[in-house]
């Protein structure tokens, strides 16, 4: 554990709490992509298969995994049931098969061992890299977003961004490199570039999140 990974994980936790706070206080999931949230459930379920296989990393690791699975399922429940009427499926139209199929094929090709758990792990890494697309697509379509929704996306982007110095640190301190995670992670972080540009120049200056026409 190093400070980059710890703060990265904390940003990830924060993103979930921001999202829950947004939905609970506004009693609405307007502007939130059910598809992105469903993809995160798929990511956690396929990546954390080791929870059920007895691979023990640490108490922290297990606790966080259980939290990510539980909270992501709860968010799906909120969108699908509790605040169902505030969800607009006509805005959330990104075709998830364009993300699922290529991620699965990449998982079959690039993995550390051709076993179910390792292929699923790789699949989850590739899928997580692109799972934000339906959410960014809603942002693109509506051209604007509530500040709190942008804080949620920013926290996710910070989490991914901090994993990069974490890998650099681990390379020097442990000599370890995880090429699959690193390549997918760099791509994933890159996807937030445009978003962060608008976030820093507008939202953090107190203006509305509005995409240039």
């Amino acid at each position: 554990m190093n400070i980059f990974r710890l703060f990265g994980d904390l940003a990830h936790l924060a993103s979930i709490f921001i999202l829950l706070h947004k939905v609970q206080t506004s009693r609405s999931c307007r502007g939130i992509s059910f598809k992105t949230q469903a993809l995160y459930v798929a990511v956690f379920m396929t990546r954390y298969l080791d929870l059920f296989l007895g691979t023990w990393v640490s108490f922290y690791n297990t606790l966080m995994k259980l939290f990510f699975i539980g909270s992501s399922c709860y968010i799906l429940y909120l969108i699908r049931f509790q605040f169902r009427t505030t969800y607009d499926p006509n805005l959330d139209t990104f075709r998830v098969e364009y993300l699922l199929v290529p991620s699965f094929i990449l998982g079959l090709i690039f993995n550390y061992e051709f076993t179910l758990t390792e292929v699923m792990w790789s699949f989850s890494i590739f899928l997580e890299a692109v799972a934000i697309f339906p959410q960014l697509f809603i942002l693109q379509r509506t051209g604007e977003a509530e500040a709190i929704t942008t804080h949620y996306i920013a926290a996710l982007g910070i989490y991914r961004g901090l994993y990069i110095p974490n890998w650099i640190y681990r390379y020097y301190s442990e000599g370890s490199v995880d090429p699959i995670a690193v390549v997918a992670g760099i791509v994933q972080t890159g996807l937030y570039a445009d978003f962060f540009y608008v976030y820093f120049t507008k939202v953090l200056q107190g203006q509305r999140f509005e995409l240039p026409a």
Binding site: T55, V57, S58, N61, A181
Partner: peptide, 10 residues
């Protein structure tokens, strides 16, 4: 056989 890295990150 190639060593599978321990997936200790989240």
């Amino acid at each position: 056989k190639e060593q599978v890295p321990l997936h200790d990150e989240l």
